[in-house]
């Protein structure tokens, strides 16, 4: 999460609709909100919609904001809800097209582990566009309930407590989901890097 570098936002000015302060709010949080939406939806057009809706709703609702959570947590919550609404809409569309569309949220066990140690790969391998595309693909494969927790906690770096507040879950619940999300992603990346290592060693022969 972005820490306020300059002056903290003036809540009273925000609630009175001061456009300078509103602009500062946008400058501070729009990057995070856009990134969150993009991770949730994997589509730049939808992410932009969510970004705009989030700030429109936030500015409208600010006079009633009671400060029980932080502004950022509050914004994240609006953005998550907007994203989930879009996802539901998409699913409905898919369901209409394919009658027997089944969501793959099966409770899989945590037994089979990939045990390749790929940590020792050169750092630049992790920073390529190919790797990034793979990371995005794997986030999309997570069930929504795990995806939201992983994005807030591990990408946006909210604390467990803030993540729980944002999603209105218990901290225990957040921890459980986080564990499952991380383990799933680790598993998938292990498969990915195992193939990568194999391809590259074959190529060198």
């Amino acid at each position: 999460m972005v820490e306020l570098q300059a002056e903290p936002l003036n809540l009273e000015a925000l609630q009175n609709g001061d456009p300078n302060e509103q602009t500062r709010l946008v400058e501070l949080y729009s990057d995070c909100i856009y990134r969150l939406a993009l991770k949730m939806l994997a589509n730049t057009h939808d992410a932009e919609d969510v970004l705009q809706e989030t700030f429109i709703k936030a500015l409208k609702a600010l006079p009633n904001f009671e400060g029980r959570s932080s502004l950022s947590t509050w914004l994240y919550r609006i953005a998550i809800n907007e994203s989930l609404m879009l996802l539901r809409k998409r699913k409905l569309e898919v369901a209409i097209q394919e009658d027997d569309f089944v969501d793959g949220e099966n409770e899989d066990s945590i037994e089979a582990y990939q045990l390749l140690d790929w940590c020792c790969l050169p750092e630049d391998v992790f920073m390529t566009n190919e790797t990034r595309a793979e990371l995005d693909r794997q986030i999309q494969k997570l069930p929504e309930n795990l995806r939201t927790v992983f994005i807030l906690r591990d990408i946006e770096a909210l604390s467990i407590k803030e993540t729980a507040e944002t999603l209105e879950l218990s901290e225990t619940n957040v921890k459980t989901r986080l564990f499952r999300a991380r383990l799933k992603l680790r598993e998938e990346l292990s498969t990915y890097f195992a193939e990568f290592i194999e391809e590259n060693t074959n190529g060198k022969k």
Binding site: W118, C119, F126, M127, T131, R132, L135, D154, I155, A157, R182, L185, R186, L189
Partner: peptide
């Protein structure tokens, strides 16, 4: 490492 890469990217 998985968490690290996600954060860095």
């Amino acid at each position: 490492k998985t968490i690290d890469i996600y954060r860095q990217q």
